[in-house]
Design a protein around this nucleic acid. Sequence first.
DNA 1: TTGTAAGCGTTATCAA
DNA 2: TTGATAACGCTTACAA
Lengths: 341, 341
Amino acid sequence: MSKKKVTFADIAKYTGFSKTTISRYFNDPDSLTLENQEKIAKALDELDYQENKLAKVLANGKSEFVGIIIPNLYLHYYSEMLNQLLSSYTDYHYKFLVFVSSDQKELEQQYLDELMAYKIEGLIVLSHTFPSEKLASYHIPIVAIEREAEHICSVNTDNYMGAVQAATLLIRNQCEILIHVNVPVPKQVPAYNRIRGFEDTCIEHHVPYELMLQDLGSTYETTYEAIKKVFVKIDNAYPGKKKGVFLANDTYANIFLNLVFQKYGTLPEEYQIMGFDNSPIANEAIIPISTIGQQIDQISKTAMELLILQMNEMKKRQPVPLSEPIHKQITPVLIRRNTTD
Amino acid sequence: MSKKKVTFADIAKYTGFSKTTISRYFNDPDSLTLENQEKIAKALDELDYQENKLAKVLANGKSEFVGIIIPNLYLHYYSEMLNQLLSSYTDYHYKFLVFVSSDQKELEQQYLDELMAYKIEGLIVLSHTFPSEKLASYHIPIVAIEREAEHICSVNTDNYMGAVQAATLLIRNQCEILIHVNVPVPKQVPAYNRIRGFEDTCIEHHVPYELMLQDLGSTYETTYEAIKKVFVKIDNAYPGKKKGVFLANDTYANIFLNLVFQKYGTLPEEYQIMGFDNSPIANEAIIPISTIGQQIDQISKTAMELLILQMNEMKKRQPVPLSEPIHKQITPVLIRRNTTD
DNA sequence: TTGTAAGCGTTATCAA
DNA sequence: TTGATAACGCTTACAA
């Protein structure tokens, strides 16, 4: 029974060295003779030593913890992002304390308190609950992903370019009218640029367009009904015209496609459909949907690099915080599948 | 600039109490007079005290950490399970250290080492990498979810009952031939019982059936091709017969449905389709797919309860570990949608 | 009701 | 290359 835990003191006693030397064995092994390294290694093994990182953290201040606050794991975008972030362990060995926010201010405040109490070295925020100003006031390394980030570093998809790519493809495919289906996005959130990019492209190419911005429900069922109304409206408004429909995400696009397919038994020539996100549903739809692929792996990688940059700075004796938050954009990729010619 | 962190010693000096009293203020406030409580509260506020849980843990041994090792977040089943587990913070205030396993033995060993080094109080395992015997050897509270768990506590969906429900519905709907599409599941994993439940039900009702157990690919594309072959085979083998097809998950079912739909332009009377999992794709398919719903919230809840049971035991002076691992089953629910009459 | 002092298991500083 | 000794910030007997 390995009841009592063995500590550096035990190893020291067992080998005749001091605790300091044992500590050195772990943190700077080359400062010991090879012979002594082996002695200690042997003792470690024989006593079945288990390290205690908490004690280490208390002594040296480096928790190797990164906090993550994420809105939900229901949307593929978020779960895949979390997946990528967690997978960065292989490269950096940071450990992640993960909280799902569900948008309650008090709860999220608790999360922040806990994260601070556990001495996280950095924080990645995807939730929208707190303004970046408040987050910045914690004075720890932070990176925001796809959210308002005036006062903190951030990584976003280049939403503008994504919309430009989508609209351009629809125009190139001879669509006579372009329609963008979206919710009324607040100006300060990054996704607002999808609307701008779409509009600018249509104007630039002198192509007629319509912006359908409205509440699109919050459950699948309500969303379905909302999109259905949108479909009926479009289908009636532009008979015989080639319609390029750019929907704000793949879930919307899939519903729209299903509605078209159910009415016509196929996807007629006069409909072109583009989604956004490249989530699985775009690929698994009755006809694989063309979409704008957010490069989640790139976003995650960039976010970690940006965070580590700041965390490394904090480890210096005289940390010089960034004078200005750094903002990065990742260009999305156009994924042509079967709903665009 | 709040540079130097304030500790109990500072509060003690400031208020004239001892560190012990400050500690008591947090852990047993009622042992202080109301007046002194207020004094301390005031000091805490004025000095802007930030607690340090790591120091606390080192002193009292209770990390409030639970480790989670999960195979991936790509499958909705896993991401939703993680979501539910993380959400249990609201009830129990355990913090979660999350790792995604990706099935590499060495990496997963690292995860376990880290988790032990951070003194987790308990562990939830969904990955299949290590046998339960090895996990049990760590002698910490563990709960396995939907995996081999001979030597550790576990929570599983009642896969047998799920398959019985699916097969029974297909039989009740007058299917003349029942087909189960699955991969060759190893006997020791819980999902094996889906096959047994299906077979037993068919036999009991004297309904002809076929088991199609074969490799179904590991990417969407290979899976699509594999299911396509299955579809062609079934479609040729039983012309004119009412076929009840029970697929091992909703992704398979969706592909199968798409193939049927593409061939016939609709779902013909002679096809009945059942999936498994109740993942979003079942609902978002061209026709909403009937499925067996895993009660992920129940599973998660039960898992946490089972873990907390063990963790609480460990906190006693004389912990008596469970003599036998406890295994719980959660009955899934039949979700009738539009692919079964 | 409050205080003293010895931990918890490391690392950091300074000496040797 | 190695060792004493004092942190790190909190808890917990044991005393008062």
